[in-house]
Lab assay of single mutants.
Amino acid sequence: MAAAAAAGAGPEMVRGQVFDVGPRYTNLSYIGEGAYGMVCSAYDNVNKVRVAIKKISPFEHQTYCQRTLREIKILLRFRHENIIGINDIIRAPTIEQMKDVYIVQDLMETDLYKLLKTQHLSNDHICYFLYQILRGLKYIHSANVLHRDLKPSNLLLNTTCDLKICDFGLARVADPDHDHTGFLTEYVATRWYRAPEIMLNSKGYTKSIDIWSVGCILAEMLSNRPIFPGKHYLDQLNHILGILGSPSQEDLNCIINLKARNYLLSLPHKNKVPWNRLFPNADSKALDLLDKMLTFNPHKRIEVEQALAHPYLEQYYDPSDEPIAEAPFKFDMELDDLPKEKLKELIFEETARFQPGYRS
Rank of each mutant, 00 (worst) to 15 (best):
L134W: 07
G245Q: 12
P268F: 01
V21F: 11
L222G: 13
P311N: 02
W275Y: 10
K117E: 10
N257Q: 11
N47E: 13
D291F: 05
D88A: 07
P229F: 06
C254K: 06
M38A: 13
K340S: 04
P356C: 00
R135S: 14
G16W: 00
L150N: 07
I90W: 00
D288F: 05
L252Q: 14
P152L: 10
E250Y: 01
A6S: 13
I56V: 12
L112E: 05
I95L: 13
H269T: 10
K340I: 03
I86D: 02
L237W: 04
P93L: 11
A260I: 00
S41V: 01
L346D: 13
D332V: 15
P323S: 10
P58C: 04
C40D: 00
D332C: 01
N45Y: 14
Q315N: 08
V104T: 01
P280C: 13
D210C: 10
L244M: 14
Q97M: 03
Q62A: 10
V18L: 13
L222Y: 11
H120Y: 10
D20M: 08
H80K: 00
L343R: 06
E12R: 11
K151L: 08
V214K: 09
I209A: 07
C127W: 05
P339Q: 15
H141Y: 06
A35D: 14
A174T: 14
I86A: 00
P11A: 13
G37E: 15
T26F: 13
L290Q: 14
N47T: 11
C166A: 03
V21T: 13
K203W: 11
P274R: 07
P339I: 06
Y131C: 05
K292G: 09
S57T: 13
S29F: 12
N82I: 15
L252H: 07
I198T: 00
D210V: 14
Y131W: 01
H299I: 09
F129R: 05
L287Y: 09
P328V: 06
N201T: 07
L267Q: 15
T206H: 11
L134R: 04
I95R: 05
S223V: 13
N257W: 08
I126W: 09
L343K: 09
G32P: 04
G10C: 13
R301M: 03
C127S: 15
I347K: 13
R277N: 03
I103N: 13
R191K: 11
I227S: 10
H310N: 15
E349V: 13
N45K: 14
S122I: 12
K300S: 09
L130Q: 14
L115W: 02
P328N: 02
A307M: 04
Y187F: 15
L290W: 05
A352D: 13
P311C: 04
H125A: 11
S142D: 03
I324F: 14
Y25E: 05
E349I: 01
I255F: 14
V145C: 02
M199V: 01
E349D: 15
Q306M: 02
E314F: 01
P11N: 11
E60K: 14
N224R: 13
Q119F: 10
G230M: 00
C254M: 00
L150I: 07
E197I: 09
D337K: 04
R172K: 10
K285G: 12
A307C: 00
P356D: 10
E350L: 02
I72C: 03
L313P: 06
F129T: 04
G357L: 10
C216F: 14
A189I: 06
Q66S: 04
T351D: 04
G32T: 00
Y317R: 00
S266F: 01
P229D: 03
R225N: 01
T160P: 11
Y131P: 01
A4I: 02
N27L: 12
I84V: 05
M293Y: 03
N87R: 02
A3G: 01
K344W: 02
F78D: 10
A143I: 06
V49I: 04
L335S: 11
K340G: 14
C40M: 01
Y139A: 10
Q17T: 07
E60G: 07
K342N: 15
P93C: 06
R135Q: 03
I217P: 09
L69H: 02
R135K: 10
E305G: 03
A6F: 00
T94Q: 08
I56M: 06
H61W: 02
Q249L: 14
S223L: 14
A309I: 00
Y193V: 13
H141C: 10
L184P: 08
I103T: 03
D179W: 06
M199P: 04
E305I: 02
N144F: 07
A307R: 03
A4D: 05
T159M: 13
S29T: 01
C166V: 03
I324L: 13
D149Q: 10
E71S: 02
M108G: 04
T118Y: 01
I89G: 02
K151R: 13
I347W: 09
D106G: 00
L338Q: 15
L252G: 07
T181D: 08
F228W: 02
P319W: 09
F19D: 10
H180S: 11
L150G: 09
K330C: 01
F78G: 10
Y263P: 03
Q62V: 10
E350G: 01
S284D: 06
P280A: 10
I72L: 12
K259A: 06
V39G: 01
L287Q: 15
E322Q: 02
D291R: 10
S320I: 07
E186A: 10
Q306A: 04
K292N: 14
D20Q: 08
E81L: 09
D336W: 01
V51W: 04
E334W: 00
Y312T: 09
D235P: 09
G37V: 15
L76S: 01
E81Y: 06
P319S: 12
I56D: 09
V14D: 15
E341W: 00
N45W: 04
H239D: 11
S153W: 07
E250M: 02
D162F: 03
I347H: 07
G215V: 15
I209M: 09
L121D: 11
I217M: 08
V145D: 01
E96H: 02
S57Y: 14
H61Y: 08
C40K: 03
F19S: 14
L222H: 06
V304D: 14
T160W: 10
Q97H: 15
H232P: 08
G37C: 07
A327D: 14
W275Q: 08
E314C: 00
K292T: 08
D124H: 09
P58G: 01
Y30Q: 09
C161S: 15
D179F: 06
Q236D: 07
T68E: 06
F183A: 05
K207C: 11
P11E: 14
E33R: 02
S284G: 06
I74F: 15
D283A: 11
I227Q: 03
R70N: 02
T63S: 14
K48P: 10
H178K: 11
K117A: 12
Q236P: 00
E314H: 00
A6H: 05
H269I: 07
Q97E: 06
N27I: 15
A327G: 01
C40F: 11
Y131T: 00
L343S: 12
N45A: 04
A327F: 00
Y30I: 03
T160E: 13
G245F: 04
Y128F: 15
Y358L: 13
T206P: 14
D111N: 13
S202D: 09
K231P: 01
D124K: 07
I165D: 08
E341K: 14
L290M: 09
F329N: 02
D321I: 05
R148S: 12
T26M: 11
Y64K: 05
V46P: 02
R91D: 01
K259M: 15
G230C: 15
W275K: 11
P152H: 15
L290A: 09
E186P: 05
V145K: 03
V304T: 03
S208V: 11
K344M: 15
V188R: 12
L184T: 10
K54N: 14
I126F: 14
M221D: 09
S246L: 02
E303P: 00
N262H: 07
D210R: 09
D288R: 06
L163I: 02
K340Q: 09
I74Y: 05
I56Q: 08
I90M: 00
P226S: 12
K270A: 04
I83N: 11
I53S: 08
